[in-house]
């Protein structure tokens, strides 16, 4: 080497680097792409500093109201799923996708009536994630449990494992989808806490928004890890419970007055 010191010739290196980068990134190395957010890109990705969850006050959940269910169906394009020709009512009810559902309970002893919406409980230790053979069922860093449709093979083992029956399998061809809710025959899906809203910086889910708009305010959405969030404060002061707390799944969705 003719150079006196062993520092490489930066100019030369820069030149080569640029050329190779320009030509190489263009055509040689598609596998090693850089992540380049668009100029107006809103989101920098999830972080485990937050954990999203819901608190549902069943006392405020009204008898014949289905505002949350309707809003969810609209928001996530579930209302675009058409009923196949020739499918019976019973089959349609058992086979159509449902992310959130209204349940009315009656205490066997006291006769007390409770209304509540059921959806994916976004467990900290989700059984559906444990059993998924391909890892398509996963939990994001911010606690949202969802399905990566790209790797879901439709084995339905997660549906067998879920203690809340929160998941739906798509039993038919789907013609229409929304941009934010891809959906097609043969994969499993469930509530994802309106993940597209969260990623866009919105701090509301469709169900919560609808419930509030109807004046019930039975659903509170927020960050469980932020002690100043409305959700965390409510959870601290009110006694709430997890459904099937015996399984120790530490759900992200909690209920009061059940």
């Amino acid at each position: 080497m003719s150079n006196k010191d062993d520092r490489p010739d930066m100019k030369r290196r820069e030149f080569i680097g640029k050329t190779v980068l320009a030509a190489g990134a263009a055509s040689v190395a598609p596998g090693v792409l850089l992540t380049v957010a668009k100029a107006g890109g809103e989101s920098r990705g999830v972080s485990s500093d937050v954990r999203y969850g819901l608190l549902i006050d069943t006392n405020k959940c009204a008898d014949d109201c289905t505002a949350c269910v309707d809003a969810c169906n609209r928001e996530n394009g579930i209302d675009l799923v058409e009923r196949p020709k020739g499918q019976s009512d019973d089959d349609w009810n058992a086979q159509r996708p449902q992310w959130i559902r209204k349940v009315q309970l009656k205490d066997k002893q006291t006769g007390e009536i409770t209304n509540l919406p059921m959806m994916c409980q976004h467990c900290e230790f989700p059984p559906c994630v444990d059993v998924c053979p391909t890892g398509a069922s996963f939990k994001r860093a911010d606690g949202i449990v969802m399905v990566d449709r790209h790797t879901c093979i439709g084995c339905r083992y997660c549906m067998m494992a879920c203690p809340y029956k929160a998941r739906s399998f798509i039993h038919q061809n789907v013609a229409q989808q929304l941009v934010n809710a891809p959906r097609g025959k043969g994969c499993v899906e469930s509530c994802n806490l309106c993940v597209h809203r969260i990623d866009a910086g919105d701090m509301t889910t469709a169900c919560q928004e609808a419930c509030e708009k109807d004046g019930h305010q039975a659903i509170v959405f927020g960050d469980l890890k932020d002690p100043d969030s409305k959700l965390a404060k409510l959870l601290k002061t009110k006694s709430s419970r997890q459904i099937r707390a015996d399984l120790e799944l530490n759900t992200g969705v909690r209920y009061t007055n059940v």
Binding site: Q98, K102, V103, L105, M118
Partner: peptide, 15 residues
Amino acid sequence: NMFPGKEVVTSEFLD
């Protein structure tokens, strides 16, 4: 049995 001690009156999802 998601709600021990309770019986399901109505559910859209056949609970």
